[in-house]
Design a protein around this nucleic acid. Structure first.
Lengths: 356, 356
DNA sequence: TCCTTGAACGTAAGCGCTTACGTAACCGCT
DNA sequence: AGCGGTTACGTAAGCGCTTACGTTCAAGGA
């Protein structure tokens, strides 16, 4: 392929640094320095080494490099469930900047299991990743939570870099969607349309995210003399199916609702399907809202009024945060939560919903 | 650093094999064998070592282990775009079995760029992953394609394991959705309803997947005396937006269509939105079909008739294939493509679509 | 002229593990 | 008793890199 000789290197063996050094007529130390841009090599020599490396197709062995104390080039990403569009889009953002930075990323998903998440994080650390990004609302459950915090802390102390997305209370860099503002905005929108009999479908209250969204929603309710305590709330799983179950329960408990506010889009989609099955028209008879603005929200019929969270951006920011030189104090980046009003909300009917 | 000491290991330092060996009073070789389950250690000794390891929280250093020739525990996954539900679900399947097998996975996405894909694969190899899974239709473009094939071949020769999803023609293990059968089924369904004026929205014809789907569709058309050549076909990008553009173009070229067959769900969704904007009712005036059965297909209004591909399963199968002992001849696993008839298809109107 | 100095490069010591090989103890056999 | 064959363990040689420390040499100051 290159060189004056028949076959410079045996077929099927990856060239090592030694090969490059030999071919370039230098020591392996010099070759290493030249390729990593370390000082102590003349520019002409460095150039020569680089050429040889390119010509033989040399790629450094990651494990050897890392073991020897070189810079690490893989980052870890922990999500709840990669099949979920919310996390898939975050991952997409992370992969995007990783590609630019020449990094590769190891992804784990916990299946929403706190214990599993802890294990994943430990595995990533054992794998020697240089940075870890944890996405997804933290679990309020204090036992595991403390362990996660502890693990990340000692990882930080060992020189690791950490950024979390969508959770707080940890002494690490954070990218946080403005859940409180989002919750406020969506309820403000709904009450602004005139709704007063509002039902809420929430995800697990053990998630910090939910806590924050409910907080903002409570404030918005208070501005019109309502509050969370007197509002029917059903807690469901964060999935379409969970939304169905919760919507049914909500309608049973409060048949005269004029609006259903779901705390994520998947559950809102489930609610829509229940309403459709029962022949209840949206938004004429009931308004429905979601949260997140996953890609399909706009394609539903009716298209879904929701709160847009910039998932891809959050992923990008998180990695950039993790990659930038560590600050003394943990940094916080807020991601704007933006109300997206579509066709699933409208003013309530004059006389309330007919009780058919 | 260590010795008869006050503190067995300094706080903040990960315990190494040496620490475990010392604590257990054995040599590091024995400790290694005990922990990796290699023969040559008495069961009682092995048990003792394992206890010590657990008590000090020992986790093997991945890089050292791999460098020294131990088993590799990371696999690579290359997809077109992780934010795309199709790939996200495949990834979910892969991560699922990886977790069970104690593996971690590095994910790269190429952004549908053949060159980038090649680079990603090379990076993964350089990173020393033990297996590589490439998902997503192959590019027909022969130049890059040959390079990918070559790279994977030499990786295989070096003892790597490879499985591909949704592409063929490579001398590696393959999980292939039955695109041909799927294409046949969906068109059979449509012509079975009585449609004869059918338009097709395809993705890039440079993808092998598309080639296969069209093949099956062609056969189904022939069974009722039609063929692809006389069928209006518009080629679009594999996205919702691409579907919109293509649908508009299709309606312009053939205003009297009674059915639109899109080659993936995203494009079908785009088509639906164009039809809705124009006040054309689906399925009364036009039937629409998709392909893939992404999660939301059932939540659209009307819900989408499509072909279900078991993405998660395909991911699982691919990793299992890659993990199983290599066979002499490349293995093929077929994933069933199943017609899912929903509400977006119906018999054509008697008189054809009114030309409003 | 000698010595200092620094740039440029080489030597070699690991990083934390796996494993080929060596060794000691012990078994059963002739 | 002496021998080969196991079994159970220890010793040490790397895996392919990075980097602290040496070495060499040319330039410059006294």
């Amino acid at each position: 392929m290159a060189g004056g000789e028949p076959q410079a290197r045996t077929a099927g063996r990856r060239p090592r640094l030694t090969d490059v050094a030999q071919e370039a007529g230098v020591s392996i130390a010099t070759a290493s320095r030249a390729l990593s841009g370390a000082p102590g090599v003349s520019e002409s020599m460095a150039e020569r080494v680089r050429e040889v490396a390119a010509s033989v197709g040399y790629v450094a062995n990651l494990h050897a490099r890392t073991l020897a104390g070189g810079p690490t080039s893989v980052v870890g990403l922990v999500v709840h469930e990669i099949g979920d569009p919310y996390f898939a889009e975050i991952a997409s953002g992370v992969l995007g900047v990783a590609a630019v930075e020449g990094l590769t990323v190891q992804i784990c998903h916990s299946g929403r299991d706190p214990e599993a998440e802890l294990t994943q994080i430990r595995t990533l650390i054992a794998n020697g990743v240089g940075a870890i990004i944890v996405a997804g609302s933290g679990f309020v459950d204090s036992a595991v939570r403390a362990k996660v915090t502890g693990t990340l802390r000692s990882y930080l102390a060992d020189g690791g870099r950490v950024a979390v997305i969508g959770r707080h209370h940890l002494a690490v860099d954070t990218v946080q969607p403005d859940n409180d503002a989002g919750g406020h905005a969506i309820v403000e929108h709904v009450v602004g349309l005139g709704h007063r009999r509002i039902g809420i479908i929430t995800g697990s209250r053990t998630l910090t995210t939910i806590h924050d969204r409910l907080g903002g929603m409570g404030r918005a309710l208070q501005s019109v003399g309502l509050d969370l305590a007197s509002t029917p709330i059903v807690e469901g799983v964060f999935t379409r199916e969970g939304g169905k179950v919760a919507a049914a329960e909500l309608l049973r408990r409060a048949p005269d609702l004029t609006a259903i506010v779901a705390l994520n889009d998947d559950m809102a989609i489930g609610a829509l399907s229940v309403l459709r099955d029962r022949g209840i028209r949206v938004p004429e008879q009931i308004s429905v809202t979601g949260f997140d603005d996953v890609a399909v929200a706009q394609d539903l019929a009716p298209s879904l009024t929701t709160v847009r969270l910039p998932m891809g951006d959050m992923g990008r920011q998180a990695l950039q945060l993790a990659l930038s030189p560590p600050a003394k104090r943990p940094r916080r980046r807020r991601a704007r939560a933006e109300l997206i009003a579509r066709d699933s909300t409208a003013p309530p009917m004059r006389s309330g919903r007919s009780a058919d």
